[in-house]
């Protein structure tokens, strides 16, 4: 329980006169137009641009947070825009963005703002994307998923102790959030940041991939992302590219169809290949799609259906 005038752990919720208030509703601190590949979502309308927004504060406190300047800040300490849900939708339409992403900090922290914006976006035929750590109770999660089309969910560790130690969250709710997203028809891609010495144990990576295959299916893309020293983990080195490549091999061995390496540029590991005939389907250079051989959701070469949401 929060006492009068007390803030929640996320810094953006406060008890004012007995009312729990979201202090950042309508006050995003970051608003950008990004390619959808940056979320990262590789199987969701490739090449489209997304109006992306975040407010200050976060329900997690990851020691490796890349966006800690906004996620671990008090809302009043950093300048924010004044943009209500209606203004956000108008902005997306004006800038020809067919999608909105609630990202950079966790949208579950600025839940009410994300929910109202998502509802309004859907009324205006815009798609909604959540980029989240997936740490939320099932009931509010259902409401948000019902009006969202895709989610990139961070599966940060496959070990509860490490989850608590590094992020302040726990594993089980994240796994439940992944399963629920799949059940509710939200397009899901998973990001797993590999941090040297903390979660680069290949046995655990294999265990995680097996869990993904058994509970979400082999068509859920996994993005193994390279760690760079940030925030409170500056003492650790960047992830060796070889570690990421081995993790990718393990995921393929387990039977996952689409596995990518993130935060490493200019590698073939950022391309999509057909799991049936091995042909190059989508060639990417950074966040730019330079070749797309998917036609109406099928491989142009063998005609097999490719998992995802396509034009």
């Amino acid at each position: 329980m929060l006492a009068d005038n007390e803030r929640g752990d996320c810094r953006l919720r406060a008890n004012f006169d007995g009312k729990l208030r979201s202090l950042t509703y309508g006050y995003p601190c970051s608003v950008h137009i990004d390619p959808v590949e940056k979320k990262p979502l590789f199987h969701f309308y490739p090449g489209k641009t997304v109006l992306s927004l975040a407010t200050a504060g976060c329900n997690l406190h990851c020691k490796n947070c890349q966006n800690w300047q906004i996620s671990q800040a008090n809302p009043e300490d950093i300048p924010s825009y004044k943009l209500g849900p209606g203004e956000v939708i108008n902005l997306a339409i004006e800038k020809n963005c067919s999608m909105l992403a609630y990202t950079y900090t966790d949208p579950f922290a600025f839940y009410e703002y994300a929910l109202d914006s998502s509802r309004l976006a859907r009324d205006n035929n815009l798609k909604n994307i959540l980029v989240t750590a997936g740490y939320l109770n099932q009931e509010p999660l259902k409401k948000l998923y019902a009006v969202n089309d895709a989610a990139n969910i961070d599966l940060k560790f496959f070990d509860d102790d490490m989850y608590k130690k590094i992020t302040s969250a726990t594993l089980r709710p994240v796994l439940d959030a992944l399963v629920l997203a799949k059940q509710m028809g939200v397009w899901v891609e998973i990001t797993h940041l590999i941090i040297p010495t903390l979660n680069d144990d290949f046995t655990l990576i294999k265990k995680m991939c097996v869990w993904i295959k058994d509970n979400l299916g082999k068509d859920v893309p996994i993005h193994f992302s390279r760690f760079y020293p940030h925030y409170l983990l500056k003492n650790l080195p960047p992830t060796p590219v070889e570690t990421l490549k081995r993790a990718r091999e393990i995921a393929f061995e387990v039977g996952i169809n689409y596995v990518y390496i993130g935060n490493v540029w200019g590698q073939e590991t950022e391309n999509t290949y057909c799991p049936y005939d091995g042909q190059l389907l989508i060639k990417r250079v950074g966040y730019t799609v330079v070749e797309n051989n998917i036609e109406k959701g099928n491989c142009k070469f063998c005609g097999h259906s490719i998992a995802g949401r396509w034009e």
Binding site: H32, S52, A54, N67, E76, I78, P79, Y81, K82, Y104
Partner: peptide
């Protein structure tokens, strides 16, 4: 809250935010 004026150019600014 500290309010900053919204500018179109902010939308296209290069940024290092993950996600």
């Amino acid at each position: 809250m500290k309010i900053k004026p919204f500018r179109d150019s902010d939308l296209y600014k290069k940024h290092n935010l993950a996600g």
